[in-house]
Design a protein around this nucleic acid. Structure first.
Length: 818
DNA sequence: AGCACGCCGACT
DNA sequence: GTCGGCGTGCTC
């Protein structure tokens, strides 16, 4: 008897053993998908991990229902990769499976409710049941979710049960529709027309139907049959759009035949292949250095300043790798901002390029998957440009992985497990394939930079900009001093305002960066001092003036009660602090003749609105652009004289252990937008503390020192080999409980991590308090604060673990291969 | 994850 | 006395 250990798409730690019936034994193979029943009725698509002959004892095995694949969809290398992800990111293999396979390949059963037409005792039902039955009767088969939304009944399970008992309804498990290849209609001549003579005869017969005659002639032209050229297939869509009726008549007259053919959804358009561009001196130097390093090291970090032409260096490396017949994965943080890269890659590599991201339909993703799984076929993708999830594609012989904008946190998945970082996972994936990794960034992450300093990675630098545009000059404007001297005009220092005025005079554009949306981050009652907070998240509500709403930026809670204090009823409400909306208003007042636009999530909810603002700025129709960090990514402008950082303090004081690093990265990125062809751009950083060391490092572009000091801070949290304990959330109020919890926490952690956890008698409480003061550990005292903390962590670390048996302790890890 | 089983508070 | 809350445990 043959048994199969399968992976289920569920968060369960172990594999499950199913029996393989004799008639499926030949089909069964590791890496193929199977349909199985799990529990009383659920049906899932599982994945065979292992086949063996060991009869399990202690329980009765169920049999596999069917095998779905002809050939395995997952290879051994991928399984190894999944297993690494599961162990490193503390999740179950089933969760990795769920994340890795496109949903088109994972059918899942759904319970559908059907009405029993033979049911007669309708009158014996209660009102609630009658209502329920009516909804069910209207639909042939309805899902429970839909039933809830249509009937408005909150707890349907009980009702369904009683109705099932009364035999008024049936329940049925149905597999949801899965991937179907796209079929298109093609035409061919009927067999009775096998030579030219008969064709002419047929055409003559059609004299009375000129339209049909015309269509048939067109078809003959297109297909090239009876001509010297090689005959080709004709898609029905190639004929004129109004020809449908004529075609149908031709079919019914047995002249034409229709047949369907599977069509790939991947773009089959032929694009202009222009080949690689020649590299300039420093690009070439970087290119040669990278190749040299790859001889001895597996990972190279390319630190190239903004617009230094890194992409062209990548393209040359990709070209070489493809020529060796190996696959290349090009990871980008977000696909939306990479249209130029896609165009560039398609120009060089044509249809070898595949694109993979979540906005593709399921069917398209399945096709990319299948395409990559069979790399030897003609027209298959050898190069994939994709977002983080593309590390899961079924590569078989990767030669190179490029991780562009390596520092970006979008490489990390936060919400559903596996909470993996695609950049770090890519290193492991490369190791499995014996491939090289090139990471690129203008502002490398501290981890990667550190790995270069310890020579784990090699470092290659490009310090000049493409086309020799000068790096911008950075100056600091002290807001506190300007306030004291009463020189401030609303939130602008004289230095910034003078520069804006000057730039406007020179017909230059201006970018103002304020990393906070809305009008003001909080409002306050002038009588009682009350600040409205979100009842769910314990954070102050942000005032949005245009909508006249108070919005919670953590959970999205909205209220329109803005003019009256919720505590004392006073109407004297002050707006405090400032966001992009307020800057926009103030600038419009200061420069009424100037066109101002704002770019943040609120102003660009739709893709169209976003593009409108961007093109408006590119075409110089907008003079001043105010934005949040949205303006820092993927945009290239050519006429920006001034970049103003409105409130650097706001970033530096963000309660995140990566705040300094983030501030540096954001400021460098936004600054990169400054500069015109023959003129140096200028960056003005407004801060209340111009002696802040980090500001100093940023102004002098001394990121080495910045990173070094940050590293010293972070070393505290390094637990070899991999796990760094960053946050401990303790929701206990009393000291005794906190102590007990800390002790138990330590004991529990030791069970998982062994002696990597600090010693048994270690003063957890003191340590926590120490870290807490440094804003690195969050201590949670109120349940409502937990949501806020979660949100903060998601932005910084994003790796949670609930300790079994300890509901009020949550441990958050940051896992990175430092 | 789903689902069943089981044990205590607020309603006919 | 029941309905319904969610805590616990199991699924090959």
């Amino acid at each position: 008897m043959l048994f199969a250990d399968v992976i289920l798409p569920l968060p369960l730690p172990q594999l499950f053993t199913y029996g393989v019936p004799d008639d499926l034994a030949e089909m069964a193979e590791c890496g193929k998908r199977v349909i199985i029943q799990f529990g009383a009725k659920k049906i899932y698509t599982a994945l065979i991990r292992k086949l063996h002959n060991n009869q399990p004892s202690g329980y009765k095995v169920k049999d596999i229902i069917s095998v779905l694949d002809e050939t395995p969809v997952v290879n051994e290398m991928q399984f190894k990769f999944w297993e690494w992800i599961a162990s490193y990111y503390l999740c179950n293999i089933g969760e990795v499976y769920k994340a890795a396979l496109p949903s088109g390949l994972k059918l899942e059963s759904e319970t559908k409710i059907l009405y029993n037409p033979d049911f007669t005792e309708y009158e014996s039902l209660t009102e609630k049941e009658k209502l329920f039955i009516e909804v069910i009767e209207k639909h042939e088969a309805i899902t429970i979710d839909k039933l809830v939304s249509l009937s408005g009944i909150k707890n349907p399970i009980k009702l369904i049960k009683t109705l099932l008992d009364k035999k008024a309804i049936f329940a049925e498990e149905k597999l949801r529709e899965s991937y179907k290849p796209r079929q298109e209609a093609y035409l061919r001549l009927s067999e009775k027309i096998h030579n030219e003579e008969q064709l002419h005869l047929t055409l003559d017969l059609l004299k009375k139907a000129p339209k049909q005659q015309q269509i048939l002639t067109r078809f003959i032209e297109l297909s090239g049959c009876f001509a010297q050229d090689i005959a080709r297939e004709v898609n029905k869509n190639e004929l004129p759009p109004d020809s449908n009726q004529a075609v149908n008549s031709l079919i019914s007259k047995n002249i034409l035949e229709v047949y369907s053919k599977e069509i790939s959804r991947l773009n089959s358009k032929h694009c202009e292949v222009t080949g690689v561009k020649t590299l300039n001196d420093y690009q070439l130097k970087a290119f040669e250095e990278i190749k040299q390093h790859f001889l001895t090291k597996d990972v190279v970090l390319l630190h190239g300043v903004t617009s230094s032409g890194k992409t062209e260096v990548y393209i040359h490396l990709i070209e070489e790798e493809l020529r060796k017949g190996r696959q290349v994965l090009y990871l980008v943080p977000e696909i939306a901002l990479t249209t130029q890269i896609i165009v560039r890659l398609k120009n060089v590599f044509g249809n070898l390029t595949g694109i993979y991201h979540s906005r593709f339909s399921d069917a398209e993703r399945v096709e990319i998957w299948k395409n990559i799984a069979s790399p030897n076929e003609e027209g298959s993708c050898k190069l994939v440009l994709g977002v983080r999830s593309s590390v899961f594609l079924p590569f078989s012989k990767l030669g190179l992985i490029i991780v562009d904008e390596e520092h970006e946190n979008t490489f990390k998945q936060f919400d559903p497990a596996p909470r993996y970082n695609a950049r770090d996972s890519a290193l492991v994936l490369a190791k499995l394939h014996g491939a090289k990794v090139l990471m690129g960034s203008a502002t490398p992450s501290i981890e990667s930079y550190y790995n270069c300093s310890t020579e784990k990675y090699a470092l290659v630098k490009i310090t000049q900009r493409y086309k020799d545009i000068q790096m911008p000059a950075t100056v600091v404007a002290n807001t506190r001093e300007a306030y004291r001297k009463k020189q401030m005009k609303s939130h602008f220092t004289p230095l910034l305002l003078n520069n804006i005025t000057e730039a406007l005079k020179n017909k230059e554009q201006i970018i103002l960066f304020q990393n906070r949306r809305g009008f003001s981050p909080y409002i306050q009652c002038e009588d009682c001092g009350c600040i409205p907070h979100c009842s769910h998240c314990d954070v102050s509500l942000t005032y949005h003036k245009r909508l006249n709403q108070l919005v919670c930026h953590y959970c999205g809670f909205v209220t329109t009660e803005v003019s009256q204090c919720p505590d004392c009823g006073s109407t004297k409400i002050k707006t405090m602090g400032f966001g992009t909306e307020k800057i926009e208003e103030e600038i419009s007042l200061l420069y009424p003749e100037v066109t101002v636009a704002r770019l943040d999530i609120d102003s660009s909810r739709s893709k169209k609105a976003f593009e409108q603002i961007i093109t408006g700025f590119e075409l110089h129709n907008i003079d001043i652009l105010i934005g949040t960090q949205m303006i820092s990514k993927g945009l290239d402008f050519d006429n920006v004289g001034i970049v103003g950082i409105m409130n650097a303090d706001n970033m530096l004081n963000f309660p995140d252990f990566r705040a300094f690093e983030r501030s540096y990265q954001l400021i460098v990125q936004v600054s990169g937008r400054a500069g015109r062809k023959n003129k140096q751009g200028k960056v003005i950083i407004q801060t209340s503390d111009d002696k802040h060391p980090i500001i100093g490092y940023i102004v002098n572009n001394d990121f080495q020192t910045l990173y070094y000091t940050q590293l010293e801070e972070r070393k505290l949290f390094r637990y070899p080999p991999y796990y760094r304990l960053i946050h401990i959330l303790l929701r206990h109020k009393t000291k005794e409980k906190l102590d007990t919890a800390s002790y138990l926490l330590a004991e529990n952690l030791r069970k998982i991590f062994g002696n990597r956890v600090l010693g048994p008698e270690y003063p957890v409480v003191e340590k926590i308090q120490d870290y807490y003061q440094k804003n690195i550990i969050l201590k949670i005292e109120k349940e409502s604060s937990a949501i806020r903390a979660k949100s903060l962590i998601q932005q910084s670390v994003g790796h949670f673990m609930e300790l079994p048996g300890f509901k009020n302790i949550q441990v958050i890890f940051d896992v990175d291969p430092m």
